[in-house]
């Protein structure tokens, strides 16, 4: 389809291939030395806290920002010099709803169809409305739609010109769980058809729905791989503590937080997650509590969230 797409080890096309991307705003590096590869047909989750550089990286991939350092290709086209070609084949869904609020659903879609040079923009818009289940709302102004519908429309708008790569910037922020689930089903269907999807999020359950994930914090890409690989690579040992008297957990949490060997304590409903990077040190720290009758200790696998929060606190230490 495209000239000069590199092949990954498993023979699949590499759709995004960037090295050492750096972007500074006013002297402050927002993205630092980010390298990544995304293979065709992958759902690639881009995770990280707010302000970590996810949006900036995505914007560099689709030509909306020029990297200060680093090189790379997107769909085989240079991200510095061939942005016009990239734009024709990439669907970008912005974090903030950026379709025309004062145009109707149909008018927005027809506008996009015309810009991308679709032969029959009206028919394409009609088809998209049907596909998105927006029938009955096509004459409604986009600004009057609810959050979930806006997000559906935005997704429909960026998939309508049949791109080869979707860049979705926090597409599910502020969307209810049902709409989120439907959205992800849609993404999986698209990926099954060979579309590559890079999606940024900070929902952990969404990360687990991705084929591969990358975690970025403070502008640096800290870890990447499948969910299992990322968890394994963290070497985090985690215990789940539950208590018969729920009120005591908060006090226990404060107590444990400062013990050597314990790197992280996080409340989860009626239980606490207690984690440490060094298993032996963690065991030592909690040994005296394990014997307490009112507490129930259970070793468990670290959750992705535990891993990320740990990564973040470590990264923070590095930058301070």
């Amino acid at each position: 389809m495209n000239a000069g797409l590199a092949k990954a080890d498993d023979g699949r096309d590499v759709v995004i291939d960037v090295q050492h991307l750096t972007k500074r705003f006013g002297g402050r590096a927002v993205v630092r030395d980010v390298s990544m590869q995304v293979k065709r047909g992958t759902i690639y989750g881009f995770l990280g806290p707010n302000g970590s550089g996810k949006t900036t990286t995505i914007r560099m991939l689709c030509g909306l920002l020029t990297p200060d350092e680093g090189t790379g290709t997107c769909l085989g086209y240079d991200i510095r010099t061939e942005t016009d070609r990239i734009k024709r084949k990439v669907g970008y869904m912005t974090q903030r709803f950026s379709l025309y609020q004062d145009l109707s659903v149909r008018e927005n879609l027809e506008f996009i169809g015309r810009i991308y040079g679709l032969a029959k923009p009206r028919a394409a818009a009609r088809a998209a409305i049907k596909r998105l289940d927006l029938s009955g709302r096509e004459e409604q102004l986009a600004g009057e739609l609810s959050g979930g519908w806006k997000q559906r429309l935005a997704l429909g708008a960026c998939t309508m010109p049949s791109p080869q790569l979707l860049l979705l910037d926090e597409p599910t922020a502020g969307v209810d769980p049902k709409a989120r689930r439907e959205f992800w089903n849609e993404i999986h269907a698209l990926a099954a058809d060979g579309l590559t999807v890079l999606v940024s999020t900070h929902y952990m359950d969404e990360a687990e729905r991705c084929h591969e994930i990358a975690y970025i914090a403070y502008g640096e890409l800290l870890v990447r791989g499948t969910v299992a690989e990322v968890i394994a690579a963290s070497h985090l040992t985690t215990y789940v503590v539950s208590s018969r008297n729920a009120g005591g957990l908060s006090a226990l949490g404060h107590e444990l937080e400062h013990k050597p060997g314990i790197d992280m304590v996080a409340p989860f409903g009626t239980s606490l997650h207690v984690s440490g990077r060094d298993a032996a040190a963690l065991e030592a720290a909690i040994s005296s509590y394990k014997t307490r009758g009112d507490l129930e200790w259970q070793r468990s696998e670290a959750s992705l969230e535990d891993v990320f929060i740990d990564l973040m606190s470590r990264a923070k230490d590095n930058f301070q």
């Binding site: 689709c62 734009k87 970008y92 903030r96 950026s98 991308y116």
Partner: peptide, 10 residues
């Protein structure tokens, strides 16, 4: 905020 979308289009 519609400019970002417009700029991302060909």
């Amino acid at each position: 905020g519609t400019m970002e979308n417009l700029l991302a289009m060909p």
